[in-house]
Amino acid sequence: MEWLQQIINGISLGSIYALIALGYTMVYGIIKLINFAHGEVFMIGAFTGFVAIVHFELSFVPALIIAMFTCSVVGVLIERIAYKRLRESTRIAALITAIGMSLFIQYLFIYFRGAEPEAYPQDVLPERTLDIFGVKVSMQALLILFISIVLMILLQFIVQKTKIGRAMRAVSYDKDAARLMGINVDNTISATFAIGSALAGAAGVIFGIYYTKIDPLMGLIPGLKAFVAAVLGGIGIIPGAMVGGFILGIVETLVSAAGFSLFRDAAAFIILILILLFRPAGIFGKNTKEKV
């Protein structure tokens, strides 16, 4: 029963990784860029949620929506300011810019508000422990899981069934052919950043509630781990990011439950190395499918 509880905790942690990983994978899918500033969008989401809850005394759902909205604006700005002009340049130039953007946001934040951490209030979500057939489950963990799954279903719906989703897929397969359909490629890329960043914003608020402590550099480690999750699932593949996130969360939780909590963070990177060695395309990736 102990293990079952740990797995449920792992799934909720994994849902946070999954939400962040979705943004990495969507952006990669459409412009083939690893947006290293994505972890900072997550951080901005956490702080926006904090301000909404503590200073404006809003409840969880409105705070979540405000954080998601703010992050989508930030994501679009990052793309328009830093990445757009690099679309035709080399991958390495774009990658270095993304890392630069990440550091820029971190230190801009520290410059204006200082580096000291902030503590989320404890009572945003009901903190109770449920007893389901002898398994003790934290209500928070369940709510977090529930919210993440709602957001993921919403995302799947947008991507698969709506016009903007169809445009996003078309642009990610073939930009010029998409243009010939009358699709505005720039706007579609912006929409992708907006949606991916909104999910990271949601993850930021959820993270704050779950772990209570937030700070300007908090995006780094969860960002890297979500990146690992995206690679694990197959970068560019949306269901891959979800599955990768859940697997990573479960593995981490089990590793620390087994008494190796010092190796918790290492687990993610060991997974990354293994996946790059043995299945670089990820779980869902088809092995080297080249465009003709």
Partner: peptide
């Protein structure tokens, strides 16, 4: 230049995008 990973009908609907 059909969108290979989309269905036939999705491709046709993309033609009507605007």
């Amino acid at each position: 230049r059909v969108f290979a990973e989309m269905t036939v009908e999705e491709n046709l609907l993309l033609g009507a995008f605007l």
